[in-house]
Design a protein around this nucleic acid. Structure first.
Length: 276
DNA sequence: AACGGACCCTGTCCGC
DNA sequence: TGCGGACAGGGTCCGT
C-alpha cells in the first residue's frame, strides 16, 4: 500500500505532535515481519525526539536508540493526542501500540508485512542490513541526473523492476512506477541501460514531479490508506494508467495494457511507451 | 554478481 | 450462497 508519498504524508501528519513525548507503555499484537528486538516495556520512559524517513521506512528517534517502522503492503499509522477522541481498544489487526504523554501511536496492518524494530543505533547490524543498500532519496538534493543516469546504465533489468527494487532511487512503488514510465513514454520492459539520454532525463523529472505532487495530494488512497491523523489521499484521481486496463489512454486513446513483471502488475500504453 | 522467482499473510472480489 | 483462485500499494531470501 504505502509508497514514498504515503509514508512521507504519514510522517508529516504526526511528527510534530509526537516530538518531545515520553513513552508511557508499549504493547505488541501478532508478530510482524521482524521481532521488535527488545521487551516492549523496556521502551518506557524514553523520549521521542523526532520522526525521519528513509525510503519507505520511518525512523522514530528516541533519546536512546530508535524505532524503525515499515508499513509493508497494508500498514497504516494513527496518532491520536490526549485531547482527541480516543482510538479505543486494539483491534485484531492492530499490532503495535505506543502510548506516550502526547498521545497514542498505533500500527494497523492486516497482512503483517510491516515491521517495528528497535535498534540501539543506525549503525546496528540489522539497521544497516535494511537501510544501507537503499538508493537515492528522490525528493532530496542528493538525487541528481548524472547519478540517476549512472544507476540505470549499470543495470540490464527491466526499468519497471529496477525502479521497484529501490536500488537506484527509493520510494517508487507499483503505482508510481507505472505512472512515471507513462509520463516519460518508456516501455516498462526496456532494459534500464538501453534507455536513451532524453528519456532518462524525462524519467528523472517525472519521478521528482509525480512523487512531490502525490505528497501534496496527501498520497494515494486505493482502498484503506489514511495518514496518522485519518486523512485520505487524492492522488489516485490523477493516475493516468494504474488500474486502468482496457480504458483509453489519456494521450492517444489506445487501450491501456496490463503486463506482469515479477508477479506485479504494470499498466502502460503500448502506443505511447516505446523501448527506444 | 545480477537477476528472477518463491514466499511471507489476510482480505476482497470475481467466476462458477 | 458457497467455494476456489487470483490479486492487492512491499521486501527479503535463495537459487542460478
Amino acid at each position: 500500500m504505502p509508497e514514498l508519498p504515503e509514508v512521507e504524508v504519514t510522517r508529516r501528519s504526526f511528527a510534530e505532535r509526537i516530538a518531545g513525548a515520553r513513552i508511557v507503555s508499549s504493547v505488541l499484537g501478532k508478530p510482524l515481519r521482524w521481532p521488535l528486538g527488545l521487551q516492549p516495556q523496556a521502551l518506557q520512559g524514553r523520549l521521542v525526539q523526532g520522526v525521519r524517513r528513509r525510503g519507505k521506512y520511518l525512523l522514530l528517534d528516541l533519546n536512546e536508540g530508535l524505532l524503525l517502522i515499515h508499513l509493508g503492503m497494508s500498514g497504516s499509522l494513527r496518532f491520536v493526542g490526549g485531547d482527541e477522541e480516543p482510538l479505543g481498544p486494539a483491534g485484531v489487526h492492530d499490532h503495535f501500540d505506543l502510548q506516550t504523554t502526547r498521545g497514542l501511536l498505533r500500527l494497523h496492518d492486516p497482512r503483517r508485512f510491516g515491521a517495528v524494530i528497535y535498534v540501539p543505533s543506525e549503525t546496528d547490524a540489522l539497521a544497516r542490513k535494511l537501510l544501507d543498500h537503499l538508493g537515492m532519496e528522490p525528493l532530496g538534493d542528493g538525487f541528481t541526473l548524472p547519478d540517476f543516469k549512472a544507476g540505470l546504465a549499470a543495470s540490464r533489468a527491466p526499468i519497471k523492476q529496477l525502479l521497484l527494487s529501490g536500488s537506484v532511487v527509493v520510494g517508487v512503488g507499483n503505482i508510481y512506477a507505472s505512472e512515471v514510465l507513462f509520463l516519460s513514454r518508456i516501455h516498462p520492459a526496456t532494459p534500464a541501460r538501453d534507455i536513451g539520454p532524453r528519456k532518462v532525463k524525462a524519467l528523472y523529472e517525472s519521478i521528482r514531479e509525480v512523487l512531490a505532487l502525490a505528497v501534496e495530494q496527501g498520497g494515494t488512497t486505493l482502498r484503506d490508506f489514511s495518514s496518522a491523523n485519518g486523512m485520505e489521499g487524492h492522488f489516485q484521481l490523477q493516475a493516468k494508467v494504474y488500474g486502468r486496463e482496457g480504458m483509453p489512454c489519456t494521450h492517444c486513446g489506445a487501450p491501456i495494457r496490463l503486463l506482469k513483471q515479477g508477479q506485479r502488475s504494470t499498466y502502460y500504453c503500448a502506443r505511447c511507451q516505446k523501448s527506444s
